[in-house]
Amino acid sequence: MEILMAIVIGILFTCATYLMLSKSILRIIIGTGLLSHGAHLLILTMGGLKRGAVPILTDKIQDYVDPLPQALILTAIVISFGVTAFFLVLAYRTYQEIGTDDMDQLRGTKHNE
């Protein structure tokens, strides 16, 4: 199972890298989204994949899932949710203001200022 997850994470990172290297801002944003998905899956895998009960203290259950990776992922998801939303609004605003979503034209050298 871990190997399968590793492959999935690898694919996500590959796609993310490919998308982030493209010129269009929208693709870059999708790339960052995939990157953070990959990172979250990685936390889940690194915390150990196993079946178990909800980690709430009761007498009968012996086998708990580790709650920490899930807490970490939830936090990371919320953060990347916020950042992605900000990025989208920023990209939209930039598109309105400068009139392009091509990173080449957003370089900021003297040539195209």
């Binding site: 982030m20 960052t32 990347s80 990025f87 920023l90 930039t94 400068i98 957003l106």
Partner: peptide, 18 residues
């Protein structure tokens, strides 16, 4: 200028955070 630079700054930091 600010919008243009914020995009780059944001992208760098998103990657660093990941």
């Amino acid at each position: 200028v600010q919008l243009r630079e914020t995009i780059k700054y944001l992208l760098v930091n998103v990657i660093a955070s990941a």
